[in-house]
Amino acid sequence: MDPSELRYLEDNDTPTMKTIKGATSGLAAGTIWGTVVATWYDVPRVERNVALPGLVRTLKVMGYYGLTFAAIGGVYIGVEQMVQKYRMKRDFVNGAVGGFVAGATVLGFKGKSISTALSAGAALAVTSSLIDFGGQTTRIDVGKEYYPYKTEKRPSTS
């Protein structure tokens, strides 16, 4: 098979791939945020001869925030993709439903109350709707196709 044809076999826009990317991005962002939180609040200063307990506590805080953000990102994107497929529309409602479900399930489960679940779900739904409704995006499609490799063949040296 011609190497230039391999790019057509890569399908990075499937709902499953988007969900995995959302969870991975959430994990990375949550781990970074957990590091910031650990340095500010939860972890005591590392002493000269007793470094391990501080390191373990820092890693626990990083893991807690990383997994929480990963769950929110994965649930949000997964539900958004399911609603988009079911409704056959691509608008702000999909993100609002995804945000509500992600906030209500993940943060409501951690808060262990119905009121926390409803308020967290509503907050994420409103935030997602405002971002989607405002047309905020990180990429603008200008129609150009960029190749990561050269398409012309190299001249033979023999």
Rank of each mutant, 00 (worst) to 15 (best):
Y65V: 05
P148G: 08
K60H: 04
L9P: 05
Y41F: 15
L107T: 11
G108S: 03
V61W: 00
D13A: 14
N12I: 08
R45P: 11
V46Q: 15
G22I: 03
R139V: 11
S128I: 07
Q136K: 12
R7C: 07
I140V: 14
L27N: 00
K85P: 00
S128G: 08
Y86A: 11
K21T: 09
A71C: 14
I72Y: 01
M17Q: 10
A51P: 13
T24G: 15
P15Q: 09
P3C: 09
A38W: 02
D11F: 02
K150Y: 07
Q81I: 02
V83A: 03
D132H: 14
T127D: 09
I131A: 10
A117V: 06
Y65I: 03
A70H: 06
G143S: 04
T35P: 00
N12K: 10
K85V: 06
T14I: 01
D42L: 10
V79H: 00
I32N: 00
I77R: 11
S129K: 01
P148H: 05
V101P: 00
V83R: 00
A71W: 02
T105S: 09
S128H: 11
K144C: 04
R45F: 10
Y86Q: 08
S156E: 11
P15I: 07
G30I: 06
T127R: 04
K110E: 06
T116H: 09
L124V: 09
I72W: 00
P148I: 08
V101H: 01
S25G: 15
T24L: 14
R7I: 10
L118H: 01
G63I: 04
D141L: 05
V106F: 03
G121E: 02
K89I: 00
D2C: 11
G66E: 01
D2P: 15
L124Y: 08
P53Y: 04
A51L: 11
A117Q: 03
E145I: 12
K18R: 15
L55Q: 12
G143Y: 00
L52C: 05
G135Y: 03
T16S: 11
K144D: 12
L130C: 12
T58K: 12
P53H: 06
G143M: 02
S129E: 03
A96G: 12
